[in-house]
Write a protein that binds this DNA or RNA. Structure first.
Lengths: 206, 206
DNA sequence: CTATCCTTCAAACGCTCGTTTGACCGGACG
DNA sequence: CGTCCGGTCAAACGAGCGTTTGAAGGATAG
């Protein structure tokens, strides 16, 4: 990789870290450009506005993430007898790999958790229009594997699963990484625990 | 709006709604005081600062919530053979009652969801210092009922349970109340679905 | 060489932010 | 009566906000 990062890339990375830490309204463009060692006006030159910078920040990561998720889902469904585990792993593992990305991936996961809590219309509209189909696609894949579950009960539980995943990704919880364990192992452990928990919860008798 | 409420209460309620919608940094004191029909300076007079207003906002709801949770937990443990279901109900029902509170309860749940995404030190420190003991208390109660589960796995799963509950109860979940059903019944149904899901998830093999 | 285009820069534009100030009101109390 | 005092008020404070501007690089093409 080229040792020198472009102005756009440095802005995106700095914004990712600062938005993760202080929120979209809480981190200013002056903080972002200072952290990126870039002139203040560069944001409006390259991205047009702060709102659009936020959109591009999501696009940079989510395009790749959704592609990989749908690829893994297709692989899972191509097998003769798809299991709930493999489908949930298709959802979780790409996010896990992104979170483990060498530069900024985990910061992006925290930004994503903020986006879920965000009720502001602009960002929610952008995300649901561009990436809303992925969740529906996974819901369709899970439905035939839980034939005894009522439609309403399934929706309840998918809500619970989404909440638990978001919560786990935002790294706020009581579980701290033990001193002797690597960050990589900690994430892998989280994914293992999550899939096990979610599968059992979804399979509970109606 | 509600002229018989005190200035402090009107500020807290307006702040709850606006912080839920726009975040702590995204909603200004001018918006809050305008919505509360109160002078701008009233916030600093009654609360000292915006940060402290946020703290008091959490204190108003969480003091009562944790008290009721611990009361119900004590009742569950007083029975000859406590079950996972009754213990989880002690955690869930008070939160659901709060969410269904006639004025502002659901807005507070959305604020709470934002607090989970918040990585800023001030709010996190306040919450963990004042209310962190509750989750530990429930963990102690649940532990003997899941003797085969490792300590770390238990904490992971309680994290998932708390996250699922929080996100399910802020109103951006998929499940809306059907027209023919009362709010009370809807809440009861939600509790049933959640406890069933959470019990199965906790009981998953380690 | 000059001309062109893309990018960077310091400076400034209105505007909104959280907070502070000092005056003013109205009931309580001697 | 006058004094006090918790509460409310309009106004202002300095700082920081997102965005815009116009000039200045710097590489490339003719």
């Amino acid at each position: 990789m080229h040792p020198h990062f472009s102005t756009k890339e440095r802005i995106l990375s700095a914004a990712e870290e600062l938005f993760a830490r202080h929120g979209f309204a809480g981190a200013s463009l002056r903080q972002v450009t200072a952290a990126a060692n870039v002139n203040l006006a560069a944001v409006n030159y390259h991205f047009g506005s702060k709102d659009n910078l936020i959109n591009e920040l999501f696009r940079r990561r989510l395009d790749d993430l959704t592609t990989r998720r749908l690829e893994m889902l297709a692989q899972a469904e191509a097998q003769p007898a798809p299991t709930l585990e493999t489908i949930l792993e298709a959802f979780v593992l790409p996010a896990l790999n992104l979170a483990g990305d060498r530069f900024g991936g985990s910061a992006f996961m925290r930004v994503l958790a903020r986006a879920y809590a965000e009720h502001d219309q602009t960002l929610r509209k952008f995300l649901s229009e561009n990436y809303g189909h992925v969740l529906k696609r996974f819901a369709q894949a899970i439905r035939p594997l839980l034939p005894d579950l009522g439609k309403e009960a399934l929706y309840w539980r998918l809500d619970f699963v989404a909440g638990a995943l978001t919560y786990a990704m935002s790294d706020f919880g009581a579980v701290k990484r033990p001193p002797g364990r690597s960050e990589e192992d900690h994430r892998r452990q989280a994914a293992r625990e999550f899939v096990r928990f979610a599968v059992a919860g979804l399979r509970a008798p109606d």
